[in-house]
Design a protein around this nucleic acid. Structure first.
Length: 585
DNA sequence: CTAGGGTTAG
């Protein structure tokens, strides 16, 4: 596109063929709306008679850039409309939710190509009408691999993986890389990250070559799982097979390395990228933030501004503000919150308010956090109330806790996390009667708490431990190891933090042997099964509790291992008896 | 002309 743009600036091309090619490249380039429009003007002014190809090029350009009115105008003024032009128009209408108009045009076509049927299938899929999509798919007399892939993707996006799998199975050897990528992404969207990775292994066994798209999905799966060595293997594969690291793949690599705690590797990828976009900068900013490097996040933001290449967006500020929050940078956070609207014209969304409430609350400014909730232009949600509840807890302000919890229960009475939190607040105040009431209300409302779950990758296999689940083959050994370890931890000075004994009130009934929180089991498993000097990386779906946080510090000291825990909100790097979060989390 | 990819507050 760059080349075309330069050509265009230097000299106005006159011939039809060049103009058409320019238009086509504009259709592919998201930033080219202006270039394409002026091309159209030149064509009109030059008196050149547009042929079918040029008209279709114009139509497609406007369709892809979202200017449906112009696309329709071009289409209406076309004296002859071939199949390609009609297909482009159908796709444009479908992309704007005008499925009925698309269908009308489709039905009027006397001659339909495979692409016509496929486009129509996709229109219905986008609208979420899977049965109509399936009807078109079934009556398509010229089914090709695109037809199957379009239908499979429709099922995946609708969350109907069973239907997708059924078609996938029937395709047999007709599956191409897009088919596999679609299924991998489908499982990713259902958060079945392990399945996504095993599908890739199957794909390799069937000798289908993975593409850049495959790698992006796999890296995302590895990032979620904290599967560092699997992801590193994928990175090596990308390099050895000379896959093209474009902005999307580069960003996937950056995000993957950050989410696995490998900051330097993430930065290496970032600096090696010839071109970046706002996604990459956002990943860097939020990456630093979740590692607890607030100042580096600010530095990255400043650098982004200085280079003046990309305008920060709402997501940039979510990263920046949460970075300030994790590092306790109150003044900076406030400053950026106000600048975001004043300087960048970005209207704060609930996420931004959430960051601010969290920032103020955690820094001990409960009153200010409360007033922030009052001035918010949007209704607070569970996350905002949750941050506030945490702030109340820090201040041991039970009355405020009760009020906030009441608000939360009103929003979602089935969310067990709220009850656990309030119950803990009561427990720390030794108000056992209220703890009991809390438990009864929770049972009465049939609320469920999301069970704690931690995973660790050992020898390229991700092991998952859910609290209270003893089904892992090594479970017995891990528990005896933990019990032995506890004696030594105590001799080093570890004392269990009893205030969060009721962290899992549901778990109380269970055997004492399965009372360990999942992260402790995962860390113990890592200590047992790995002998290297590599750090241990554990990923947890909830926040770590104070007791596990304390215990892990002592474990890191005792075994002289770096233990990295990525919890729901940030990273903890435990080294030699201390944590990188400096107990601020 | 038609199928598959990335960042987001607790």
């Amino acid at each position: 596109m760059g080349l075309y743009r330069r050509m265009f600036c230097q000299k106005i091309p006159r011939d039809r063929e060049t103009l058409t090619r320019l238009l086509r490249s504009c259709a592919r380039d998201v930033t080219s709306i202006g270039v394409g429009e002026s091309l159209h003007c030149r064509i009109l002014k030059s008196g050149l008679v547009a042929d079918l190809f040029m008209q279709t090029g114009l139509l497609d350009f406007y369709a892809k850039r979202g200017v449906l009115v112009s696309a329709e105008k071009v289409f209406e003024e076309m004296p002859d409309r071939d199949v390609v032009a009609c297909n482009a128009m159908i796709a444009a209408l479908g992309g704007h939710g005008r499925t009925e108009d698309a269908r009308k045009l489709f039905d009027e076509m006397s001659l339909k190509s495979s692409a016509s049927w496929n486009t129509m299938t996709t229109c219905y899929c986008k609208q979420g009408d899977l049965s109509l999509a399936r009807a078109i798919f079934d009556s398509n007399p010229v089914k090709d691999v695109v037809s199957w892939n379009a239908m499979i993707d429709g099922y995946c996006k609708a969350g109907q993986l069973g239907m997708a799998e059924e078609l996938f199975g029937r395709m047999g050897s007709a599956r191409n890389s897009v088919t596999w990528n679609t299924m991998i992404t489908g499982h990713l969207q259902q958060r079945e990250f392990g399945v996504a990775i095993s599908l890739f292994r199957e794909m390799q066994m069937e000798d289908v070559k993975p593409t850049e798209v495959t790698m992006v999905s796999l890296l995302s799966a590895c990032a979620h799982l904290g599967a560092l060595s699997t992801g590193k293997w994928i990175h090596a594969y990308i390099c050895s097979h000379h896959l093209n690291v474009d902005v999307v793949l580069g960003n996937a690599l950056i995000d993957f390395y950050f989410k696995c705690g490998s900051i330097d590797a993430a930065l290496d990828v970032f600096h090696s990228m010839p071109s970046k976009n706002v996604f990459c900068w956002n990943s860097i900013i939020s990456g630093f933030g979740m590692q607890g490097y607030g100042h580096k996040a600010i530095q990255a933001f400043t650098e982004m501004e200085k280079q003046n290449a990309f305008k920060p967006d709402g997501i940039t500020f979510v990263g920046l503000l949460s970075a300030c929050s994790h590092s306790g940078l109150v003044a900076e956070g406030k400053r950026y919150f106000y600048r975001m609207r004043a300087v960048y014209g970005i209207v704060p969304q609930i996420e931004h308010y959430g960051c601010m409430v969290d920032l103020l609350g955690r820094a001990g400014l409960l009153r200010e956090a409360l007033s922030f909730v009052e001035i918010m232009e949007v209704r607070p949600n569970c996350v905002v109330w949750g941050s506030l509840l945490r702030a109340c807890k820090i201040h041991n302000n039970i009355e405020a806790s009760e009020q906030v919890t009441e608000q939360m229960m009103r929003l979602d009475p089935r969310d067990g996390g709220n009850y656990v939190f309030l119950s803990n607040a009561y427990a720390s105040a030794r108000r056992w009667g209220d703890v009991e009431v809390c438990r009864r209300v929770m049972t009465a409302n049939r609320a469920r708490k999301v069970p704690g779950c931690s995973s660790i990758e050992v020898d390229n296999v991700v092991h998952e431990f859910v609290v209270g689940d003893a089904s892992h083959a090594e479970f017995g050994n891990i528990c005896s190891f933990l019990a032995e370890m506890e004696v030594e931890l105590r001799s080093l000075g570890y004392r269990p933090v009893t205030a969060c004994v009721l962290h899992d009130i549901e778990e109380e009934e269970k055997e004492k042997a399965v009372m360990y929180h999942s992260e402790r089991i995962a860390i113990a498993f890592g200590l047992m099964r790995t002998r290297s000097t590599e750090p241990i990386l554990v990923v947890k779906n909830l926040r770590v509790c104070v007791d596990c946080h304390e215990a892990t510090k002592f474990m890191a000291k005792m075994f002289q291992r770096e233990i990295i825990v990525r919890d729901r909100s940030r990273f903890h790097h435990f080294r030699d008896g201390a944590c990188s979060c400096r107990d601020y989390w």
